[in-house]
Design a protein around this nucleic acid. Structure first.
Lengths: 244, 244
DNA sequence: CTGGAGATGATTGTATACGCCAGGCGGGCA
DNA sequence: TGCCCGCCTGGCGTATACAATCATCTCCAG
């Protein structure tokens, strides 16, 4: 028992607490680690996630890993095939369309309410997020930029005051990140340079209609930038598709 | 090991298979059993769900029950408090508002697409569902009526062809059922008599706009029928609020 | 009589052990 | 030589055992 816990110490990067922490918090941290790795494309779609390996890396037993994996599966970030284990979800073209249609409906629909409720503090926060995203983009840190972009959209949804829809948008953004990993062009990242800044401007002016329309175009632009040309791929791709 | 499986036999109501089935299917069945019980108000908000008890009732070990409970928690049908176990979620007034706002946005937004895609077979199926719901209502079978009503809305969303949004609507409907259990008036059930039939009529005519507007009024009517007068209740209510 | 502290019991959280199934591989046969 | 069948191993699914924690009850002191 103790051996494992000792193992876990080396993983706890920066965590000063000597024991193994609260447990629940550790699981949350692990969940976020894996989730971030997927969203940032450090774990690519199709990558297999073996329970034993994850359990060893994070210094917990398979039980905890299984719980986390199931949560990720429910959010459709990983796919759980009955006796084959977990792997990072590889979205289909249909799913991609569904996700972006859903975002179109929900995120645009939320804009008027956001414009109505937004405060100066919120505007400041959003501008800061947009700035950091731009910086990451300019620095070539794609991983960070992708995560920040998703975070921006999610934060925006939260400002509507509807927690249920905000959570939904959060999930859609996560899945969008996966979709970008599969169908996105390398050089052409999700959100364009100052789209987000322009959007903030409309919201700050209280113009929900303009914001909604702009968000619509913004999402359409992202979707259009995807190259949804799936299937009919050669042997080497089969290799990666089937995970090994 | 075998003792437990023998125990499970008595539970498997009507299940002819001698062994313990596929396992995954059994879990799915248990999940649906609990989910249905909650949606049909046979398990009331606040009811505690002890793992041991459930494990014994369904003839599986706690491990499987935990998995199911966590899934239900992610769908917000049950609440998992850290070391206190699981209980049927008691929605707050804010959550109720969020859920109905979300339904307003998504379900109405879906109507045009549904009107565009609906087939004669779909219409037949929907009419049948509406008829069964009316019959259940007339027979005084509230549980059945509630479930059928939720199923109707979910099926409707599925007809849009967007699986992601359909799943979301399904969850919203489940939560709505919970909300009705807490804030609904006894005599005044969720969906009125032939609202659903009228809605089918608009869809069959391909009139998405009318259908969306009608759906909007339909949901508003349900929401308005709620008596969202929470808190400031006397001692006996405190008793039930805190679950024991 | 009341408030607090300790012990006890109940219940969840975690880890481990075992069984099963699928896929891979080697040998045998056509 | 090519195909098919059987074994074997790796990894998941489930159950059980253990440990930790919180609530409650009781007893004692003020």
């Amino acid at each position: 028992m103790s051996q494992r816990h000792i193992e876990s110490q080396r993983k706890a990067s920066g965590s000063g607490r000597g024991k193994d922490g609260d447990g629940a918090e550790r699981h949350e941290a692990i969940y976020r680690s894996i989730s971030d790795a997927i969203i940032e494309h450090r774990l690519k779609p199709g990558a297999r996630l073996r329970e034993d390996a994850l359990a060893e890396v994070f210094g917990v037993s398979r039980t905890g890993i299984r719980k986390i994996l199931q949560r990720l599966a429910l959010e459709q970030l990983v796919t759980l095939t009955p006796r084959r284990g977990a792997s990072v979800t590889r979205p289909t073209a249909d799913e991609a369309k569904d996700v972006f249609d859903a975002r179109q409906m929900v995120e645009c629909g939320l804009m008027p309410e956001v414009a109505r409720r937004i405060t100066d503090d919120d505007v400041r926060e959003l501008r800061d997020m947009a700035r950091r995203e731009r910086e990451a983009l300019r620095a070539g840190e794609q991983s960070t930029a992708i995560k920040l972009s998703a975070a921006f959209h999610e934060r925006l949804a939260q400002l509507s005051g509807n927690a249920t829809l905000a959570e939904f948008v959060g999930r859609l953004c996560s899945r969008s990140s996966l979709i970008l990993a599969v169908y996105g062009n390398a050089g052409h990242l999700g959100c364009e340079s100052h789209d987000h800044d322009d959007l903030i401007g409309y919201l700050e002016a209280g113009n929900g209609e303009r914001a909604a329309a702009f968000m619509g175009r913004h999402l359409k632009a992202i979707e259009a930038s995807l190259s949804i040309i799936e299937e009919t791929e050669e042997a080497p791709d089969l290799h990666s598709i089937f995970g090994r």
